[in-house]
Design a protein around this nucleic acid. Structure first.
Lengths: 141, 141
DNA sequence: GTGTTTGCAAAGTGTTTGCAATTTA
DNA sequence: TAAATTGCAAACACTTTGCAAACAC
């Protein structure tokens, strides 16, 4: 399903990000951007492209995830110990973290507000605010 | 400064937490609880007790940090890739993270509010809300 | 004395890196 | 063909673990 000819739209996306369109990057971008918002780790993404028959090394998956992040195509989330997550939703938003399953879910940018932030120490500027709402779901009955 | 006789208050704290008062745990607790709120990693704490002349292995520091966390004496923060931080302030509060220096600072429990959290997926219950305010400070002139 | 804790070294995870071979533009 | 990218294996940072010796109660 992925060995075919390059998709011109993905090629354009990579170009626009200043990245050469290689077979590996194309396959990764294609999987990442195929559905809506996703939270992947290097391992899960690697498994996914390989399952489609594309040969990519794990090191390349790491490199590519970072390139994509630098290019603004992804956002990196360091939520727990364990692997980093990469979020295909790069707009400002926050997350639910299910403590039992480890699953991350977007909190849609909407009603959630953080107010009353005091001014930062060291005369610094606020670069971003991240909210994690830890949830414990009741497990399967 | 730390090789002396055990401090009875620290012994009591450990006892109350259901932990035997060993030389190592006593030294670690003593350093941790000496000043106000602190953010330590296993490495920084290890260096600190050893600088006081107490011999403790790094493995024991890790074990002890987790015991203390389980006992409610510390709170673990996983803020970035890199090492875990342990916070001696176990009351609900949030943090500034200086992106340049990596330094964590408490946001005192006060005006900061998170409002408009939608109900969690999977009929889960909210177990906690964590806010990280990323700050970029202007570096030393 | 008995069960707990320690320290070491080894193993484990997740990630990065050096570098030769390959590929892209 | 020049510059970028890949893949491998080795290195890396942080953390956990197995187990014998040491220790607290």
């Amino acid at each position: 399903m992925l060995g075919g000819p390059p998709n011109p739209e993905i090629r354009r996306t990579l170009k626009a990000a200043g990245l050469r369109s290689t077979r590996q990057r194309h396959a990764l971008a294609s999987v990442l951007l195929r559905h809506g918002n996703r939270h992947v780790t290097a391992e899960t993404l690697h498994a996914e492209v390989r399952a489609e028959g594309v040969k990519v090394s794990l090191a390349t998956v790491y490199n590519t995830l970072h390139s994509f992040t630098r290019a603004g195509l992804l956002r990196e989330l360091m939520v727990e110990s364990g692997p980093s997550y990469f979020d295909t939703n790069t707009t400002p938003h926050h997350h639910f973290l299910d403590q039992r399953t480890g699953v991350l879910t977007d909190i849609p940018n909407g009603r959630l507000r953080v107010t009353g932030i005091p001014s930062p120490p060291e005369s610094g500027e606020i670069a971003g605010v991240e909210v994690i709402v830890r949830v414990h779901s009741g497990g399967p009955e």
